[in-house]
Design a protein around this nucleic acid. Structure first.
Length: 394
RNA sequence: GGGGGGAUACCCAAGUGGCCAACGGGGCCUGGCUGUAAACCAGGUGGCUCAGCCUUCGCAGGUUCAAAUCCUGCUCCCCCCA
């Protein structure tokens, strides 16, 4: 691909590229660029939000550049004593390794293993030492730190900011120095930290990295950014049907954003989809995303499943057979709360009782009205709890 | 080092001796409506052998017929001044 083609393709979805001319001149050298991406080893899943950045990284790889993944094992081991919650336990090396392995495995679905370099920041941060840390921190002022929005806000409202949090951006920035990054990717929430990298590289006599920020994808609640701690995320490893269902629950107004950031559809295909009635547009969205991570077939199948169960209100094509556990049977009658709990359809038997009271438990479509019912009223029937849980009772 | 404030269920937050399994909001769950949603409406949201019982309000003791609320000690957190 020629220079302007590369530039255009790479910057296409980016929220911000600082500065574009530097990216252009780096590309012009023709050498493979080192594209850095930091990885938080505390997370367990790769979300569609994270995938936005990962897919950008993949794009760089496809154009012949080198992906440099940095595991933040050092910082994870320090733990974070700040915040109102009880002190977060420090992660041991083993825990970091376990997380890293899990996450990297998922990365495989997006990032190519060619032109990939994986580093741990303990490699250089461990030996940096107190003196080195002081040296790094010399080049930033408190005023500058307070420029960062979240710090400024928290400071203004009088809530706590730990010194460690101040140091964090410096360490992340130092990573860029250590790996001699040409480009660093991140979400727009990383703005400040990414710029610290530029600054430090200059201090250490390197050519500063280009910062490329990708838009943040809102989660399924449609408001807050997709995050694992908020529980509003869709993981790329999620079963196809669940993934499809969650995507259908994304608010309409976010459809275009999801199309652009989470699918590989062309502008034309996106425009065409959005010209459809909303429910059809959203089906295409869900199908496209599922296809990306589970393959063509799964995309079609999960769409069919969704239509069948939620649109036409029919039973799923496949329902697991379940034998009623002995402890849910008393004197030949079925204790429904025990049954729901045993099947994992209710978190406790109290929860199960509530579901029954509220009409959320059905047998062959008829609401269950008592906690204890005769075994003959149950056997061979389809149990449905809420919208999503089904089982055929034997 | 000094002063002040705080710790309540998933989160925020009310409650200062009995009417407290604990107001209100968010989130979440169920039902209704629908396009699957959003918006909206209704209900629910500690556990259990469930019209009753058991365990919760930072931790440990104590006072009382009775404590989230009072007393003592402890732990942790935040802010301000130096």
């Amino acid at each position: 691909m020629d220079l302007s083609g590369q530039l255009e393709a790479l910057t296409a979805n980016a929220a911000e590229v600082i500065p574009v001319p530097e990216l252009e001149s780096k590309l012009r050298t023709g050498r493979p660029l080192r594209v850095k991406l930091g990885l938080d080893p505390t997370a367990k899943d790769v979300t569609l939000g994270w995938a936005v950045v990962l897919r950008k990284l993949r794009q760089f790889q496809d154009l012949g550049h080198t992906a440099v993944l940095i595991l933040g094992d050092f910082t994870a081991q320090i733990g974070d004593p700040s915040g109102k919650d009880e002190t977060r336990p420090m992660l041991t090396k083993d825990e970091v390794d376990a997380h890293a392995r899990q996450v990297l495995e998922q990365f495989d679905l997006i990032v190519s293993s060619d032109r990939l370099e994986i580093r741990r920041n303990s490699e250089w941060l461990e030996s940096l030492g107190a003196a080195g840390l002081l040296e790094v921190s010399t080049h930033h002022t408190v005023a500058r730190m307070l420029e960062r929005n979240d710090f400024a806000e928290r400071f203004a409202e009088g809530s706590a900011i730990s010194v460690r949090e101040f140091l964090y951006p410096l360490l992340q920035g130092y990573d860029s120095v250590a790996v001699e990054a040409d480009v660093e990717l991140g979400g727009t929430d990383q703005h400040f930290n990414l710029l610290v990298g530029r600054h430090l590289q200059r201090v250490y006599g390197q050519e500063p990295q280009v910062v490329m920020e990708m838009p943040l994808l809102e989660g399924t609640d449609g408001v807050q950014k997709m995050s694992q701690s908020l529980g509003n995320y869709i993981a790329i490893t999620e079963p196809a049907e669940d993934m499809f269902g969650k995507l259908m629950r994304v608010p309409d107004r976010l459809m275009e954003k999801y199309f652009r950031l989470a699918t590989d559809l062309s502008d034309e295909a996106i425009a065409d989809a959005l010209a459809q009635p909303p429910q059809e547009a959203k089906r295409r969205l869900a199908e496209s995303v599922v296809r990306l991570y589970h393959g063509e077939r799964a995309g079609l199948d999960s769409r069919a499943h969704f239509d069948r169960v939620f649109k036409d209100h029919e039973l799923p094509e496949q329902i697991d057979d379940v034998t009623i556990p002995a402890h849910a049977v008393k004197d030949g009658r079925i204790d429904v709360p025990s049954l729901l709990k045993a099947l994992g359809f209710a978190s406790s038997s109290s929860d199960a009782r509530r579901l029954i009271d509220q009409g959320g438990v059905r047998l062959d479509g008829a609401p269950v009205e008592a906690n204890v019912i005769g075994a003959d009223e149950v056997r061979g029937k389809i149990l449905r709890v809420g919208k999503r849980h089904f089982a055929r009772l034997l």
